[in-house]
Amino acid sequence: MSSYRSSQRVLRTLLYVVICVLGFAFIFPFLWMIVSSFKLNRDVLAIPIQFFPPTWNWMSYVNVFTKFPDFNFPRFILNSFIVTAVAVVFCLFLSATAGYGFAKYKFKGNGLLFMIVLATIMISFEAIVVPLFILVRRLGLQNTYWGLIIPESLTAFGVFMMRQFFFSLPNDFIESARIDGANEYAIFVRIAIPMAQTALLALVIFHAQWVWNLLLWPLIVMSNPDMRVLPQGIALFKGGYNTPYPEQLAVSVVACIPLLLLYIFLSKYFVQGIAMTGLKG
């Protein structure tokens, strides 16, 4: 029994060591990004390696926003915020309305239409990117926020998730509101939506994360330098001639902040959103 205990203790210590090393390995590149962004360009790849900057240099954070006329980063950040906010609202609108319609009304063709919507999860973005570009250009949406937002906000998964949620919402609430004379849209807005808050919030985070990180589609649809979004700006900035590392890293740190804040305040919904994609073992 005591040898069992001590072997338990060894195992436990070992597990701790492994997990701590692991945790360190996972956070280190992020810390390295931050400290390196405060180094001078000549120190950033110097040998021997020093973790903390020999001289703390804040200028890269100023330079990146002022010294590169081809890269209007304040504008890119603004674009990214606008695109993400609008895309999230748009995605919520489509997912909630369709999810509610499919879950709560027994109209003809409900099952078939839902299958068609769900089947679009088979269409990966890479498979349609060329015709999509032609379509968006023909509709005059190239270099517009909507041209970027619409194709990236159509998620069958969102519709699926909201439909599942509204299925679980008891019909009694809806029926009694109907008896009170409320019309169908008032019921949706005043009763169904407030009850769906948790599911909607998970979807907000899921989609905000997705849109904030977009790169391929913006590279294609936003050819006007003023319409670039932040990841696109950073990728092109990095590919530019002789771009200094501290500036690259500084703007990368900035790009990470919004989602980190979202995570710090709403981590519960982050995990919930992911867990919802893969459950019922």
Partner: peptide, 28 residues
Amino acid sequence: RLQNHGYLFILPTLVFFTVFLIYPMISA
């Protein structure tokens, strides 16, 4: 008639999915 309200709820999704997902797929 009551159940047919469902069509209006799913209409935006159907329109956008058809134009920006299904049509481009066929187009590809």
